[in-house]
């Protein structure tokens, strides 16, 4: 339907994971100063909420941009399964080399989801807690 309107579908998912903010590029003292209690060597955890937005043509036969079962399955496989009840530092390869701040978690989730074959990924929003939210829509081309 070409009526000049854009439709996006938004879906929220949840996972719980632990992390520790610690940069190998900083001294022990600087790490403590920069990250405060998030630098606690044993880590700590959050209940993360991930909001995924996709856009595309609404199929007149189904009324859908993408079948939710397909989107849910893809997000489950690419993000929830590898992140849920894991240590982000230890269990997610990306965070062996970068600090699992929620900025970086948000970008990593975007990278994992941007190949969703059924619709265009518009953005990823991650709530680390109800008070901290991060959003990433890819780099401007």
């Amino acid at each position: 339907m070409n009526d000049g309107l854009k439709i996006e579908l938004g879906r929220r998912y949840r996972f719980s994971a632990s992390h520790r903010l610690h940069s190998s590029k900083l001294s022990e003292e600087e790490n403590r100063r920069v990250y405060g209690k998030c630098n606690n060597p044993h880590g700590h955890g959050h209940n993360y909420v991930v909001e995924v937005s996709v856009s595309g043509t609404v199929d007149p036969a189904t009324g859908m941009i993408a079948n939710l079962a397909d989107l849910d399955g893809f997000v489950e496989r690419e993000v929830i399964e590898p992140f849920d009840h894991k240590s982000l530092n230890e269990d997610v390869a990306k965070f062996r080399e970068s600090v699992p701040t929620t900025e970086n978690v948000c970008k990593e989730i975007f990278e994992r989801l941007k190949h969703f074959p059924k619709a265009k990924l518009e953005r990823v929003r991650v709530e680390e807690t109800g008070n901290n939210t991060f959003e990433y829509a890819g780099e401007e081309v």
Partner: peptide, 9 residues
């Protein structure tokens, strides 16, 4: 956990 947005292109 599920919503749709509509806006002008």
């Amino acid at each position: 956990d599920l919503y749709a947005d509509c806006y002008r292109n």
